[in-house]
Simulated assay, not measured.
Amino acid sequence: MSSYKEIVLRSGKEASLQRFHPWVFSGAIARKPEDLVEGETVRVLAADGTFLGVGHFQIGSIAVRIMSFVDEPIDAAFYKKSLSNAYRMRSSLNLVRPDNTIFRLVHGEGDCLPGLIVDIYGDTAVIQAHSVGIHRDLELVTNALKQILPTDMVKHIFYKSEGTLPYKAGIFPENSYLSGGEDVDEIAMENGLRFRIDWLKGQKTGFFVDQRENRALLEYYAKGRHVLNMFCYTGGFSVYALRGGAASVMSVDSSAKAVSITDQNVALNFGEDPRHSSFPEDAFKFLRQLSGGEKDLIILDPPAFAKHRGAINNALQGYKKLNLQALQKIAPGGFLFTFSCSQVISAEQFRLAVFSAAAISGRKVRILHQLTQPADHPINIYHPEGEYLKGLVLQVE
């Protein structure tokens, strides 16, 4: 039995933990120690004293993130075991191979490690903490990574949590290398394509790893088509479209830096390819000004329109407006790849927003594929909130 401080739940609030949901909400707590420090590991007990789980305490709505439903210490051995399991699964998925050096090693609750993200880019591992507990355990995580990954695989470990930890915790972490950091190669490979990864200043950990399988599907549809990649970020969909034989590809993003990296990624794989053009412009404005019928394959992969439940209605209106513009402009017989990465927007809500846009457009629209996140972004079956990426492939007459 572990010897951590104990949090006791109110009567009747143990049911979700007994179903292995990994979150304890603050309203479920009956009592906790007065000297409890944010990020500290605690034991969670039912009102009758029954053990429920061990996890990290944090101030806020989600008060405890359960790390284990077994009464065990969250120590070096725990992280080594958990990270070994995560790496073994990625290996079994055939993601660890010479032509694919980009993958997610740890996906928070999906890998039973709430608050922890680890992405692999070539010989660099990027760690991101979304809880104070993971930040406090950072040395344990780093040491475990060094032990479980092949010595010739990862030479650098970068910590990127400045924007993901609660500011009220008073931690003020700095993005920095925890090991290595010299002679770093920022080029990594996904399915045989080369990408420059900006983990220093880029969004998330530097690349949208979660769209890998959807990019591969787009490549299948791209041959001979005129492609418009909205919210292109660093150009993943654009590069796949070019390899797929697209007649032309336009990449659009409001960030000039992102567009610059897109151009670099195109050049890394195809040199100066006349099929590609890029525009640092607002997506909504660009779509309004686009000539109708000019593009027959459009990708809409915007940033999250809703980051909390209070923003859901506005987000759904945003998705409807954006998809309506694309549906009005796409050429007959064209394909629309449209996505939402807002966790608080359900697949049903997103599909209804797109349905509303299709109805207003008056065009015949068919769903060819319903898309989600890849297997290295697993969804814990007891934590359905982990299903955040939704996508549809539409054929438009």
Results as ranks from 00 to 15, higher is better:
residue 57 F to D: 02
residue 90 R to G: 10
residue 257 K to S: 11
residue 14 E to T: 02
residue 306 A to Y: 08
residue 78 F to I: 04
residue 392 L to N: 07
residue 139 E to C: 00
residue 366 R to N: 11
residue 2 S to Y: 12
residue 30 A to F: 01
residue 178 L to H: 11
residue 111 D to N: 14
residue 178 L to P: 00
residue 337 F to D: 05
residue 166 P to L: 00
residue 342 S to G: 02
residue 332 P to F: 13
residue 212 R to C: 09
residue 293 G to W: 08
residue 258 A to Q: 05
residue 139 E to Y: 07
residue 156 H to V: 01
residue 310 G to H: 06
residue 87 Y to H: 09
residue 101 T to L: 02
residue 115 G to H: 08
residue 302 P to C: 01
residue 160 K to D: 13
residue 222 A to I: 03
residue 315 A to P: 04
residue 229 N to A: 02
residue 276 H to T: 04
residue 74 I to F: 12
residue 189 M to K: 14
residue 125 A to W: 04
residue 248 S to P: 02
residue 369 H to K: 15
residue 146 K to Q: 15
residue 219 E to Y: 01
residue 155 K to W: 01
residue 388 Y to T: 02
residue 193 L to I: 01
residue 125 A to F: 01
residue 315 A to M: 08
residue 86 A to S: 12
residue 146 K to A: 14
residue 72 E to D: 11
residue 179 S to H: 05
residue 70 V to P: 00
residue 304 A to E: 07
residue 258 A to D: 10
residue 131 S to Q: 06
residue 18 Q to V: 09
residue 323 N to S: 09
residue 201 K to Y: 14
residue 149 L to E: 10
residue 353 A to Y: 04
residue 300 L to T: 12
residue 323 N to E: 08
residue 394 L to H: 03
residue 105 L to C: 09
residue 311 A to S: 15
residue 271 G to A: 08
residue 341 C to M: 05
residue 251 S to H: 12
residue 23 W to T: 06
residue 247 A to Q: 12
residue 247 A to N: 03
residue 353 A to V: 01
residue 260 S to H: 13
residue 1 M to E: 12
residue 45 L to A: 01
residue 382 Y to V: 07
residue 93 L to P: 10
residue 321 K to A: 11
residue 335 F to N: 06
residue 22 P to F: 10
residue 180 G to E: 02
residue 259 V to I: 12
residue 231 F to V: 08
residue 188 A to W: 09
residue 27 G to H: 15
residue 340 S to M: 05
residue 134 I to V: 14
residue 157 I to P: 00
residue 77 A to C: 03
residue 194 R to D: 00
residue 171 I to F: 04
residue 216 A to Q: 14
residue 133 G to K: 05
residue 121 Y to F: 15
residue 1 M to N: 10
residue 361 S to Y: 12
residue 157 I to V: 14
residue 57 F to E: 03
residue 42 V to T: 11
residue 205 T to F: 03
residue 281 E to N: 08
residue 58 Q to R: 07
residue 394 L to V: 05
residue 224 G to S: 09
residue 374 P to H: 13
residue 85 N to Q: 15
residue 391 G to W: 08
residue 236 G to K: 04
residue 59 I to E: 15
residue 150 P to C: 08
residue 277 S to W: 08
residue 289 Q to K: 15
residue 307 K to D: 11
residue 352 L to G: 00
residue 225 R to C: 00
residue 214 N to M: 05
residue 390 K to N: 07
residue 34 E to H: 11
residue 180 G to V: 07
residue 157 I to F: 05
residue 85 N to C: 07
residue 375 A to S: 15
residue 339 F to T: 08
residue 351 R to K: 13
residue 174 E to Y: 03
residue 168 K to P: 00
residue 194 R to K: 15
residue 264 Q to T: 10
residue 37 V to G: 05
residue 283 A to I: 09
residue 397 E to N: 12
residue 342 S to P: 00
